[in-house]
Amino acid sequence: MVNADGQLYTIEGVAAALILLLTAYIVVNSTSVYTMGDTHISDMQLEVVGDDALKMMNTAPNSSVEKTSLRTIIETGDAVQFQEMFDSIVNAKTGTGRDRIQFMANVTYERSDGTVGDVPLGASSHIFTGREHAVRVTEWVIVDSPCPLCSDVTSGKHAVLVEALVWRD
């Protein structure tokens, strides 16, 4: 028999079911976007550290020095010097320990035939395998050519781009 008893209980039941469903939906949905919001923040900080390091290397220590360290390194092709300098800047840390930042740097330049080429400039002790979660930092430098790294360019001044992949392991 159909009667009109207990309608409030029915409405309450439907409302409760809706609230439960909505809550469950929101909870499930929130786990799906839980892609470690923190990694983006540390990426951002790593990018700043790497960029600052390259910028420091591309700044002449005083006004009587004409060429910056980075420019001299590229013009002489001194990978060891780059490695030591970049490594000590990015891994400097308050206290006695050092940071765990690893890197791999390339110099990108335009060949005389107009194509873009790149040569390795230096890397840290841990080889880049491609699985690391790395960020990229870049720095423009104007160098005098020909230099040992970029031999297939015409002589004169050239703009080259130093690119470094930086990651923490």
């Binding site: 909505l22 809550t23 929101i26 976007v33 983006h40 951002m44």
Partner: peptide, 22 residues
């Protein structure tokens, strides 16, 4: 219900901010 919404939104905040910056 509202606390669930807060949790849902809070995970996105750090991500979108850092993403926008990078």
């Amino acid at each position: 219900f509202f606390i669930a919404i807060l949790i849902n939104q809070s995970t996105i905040v750090g991500q979108t901010t850092a993403e926008a910056v990078s």
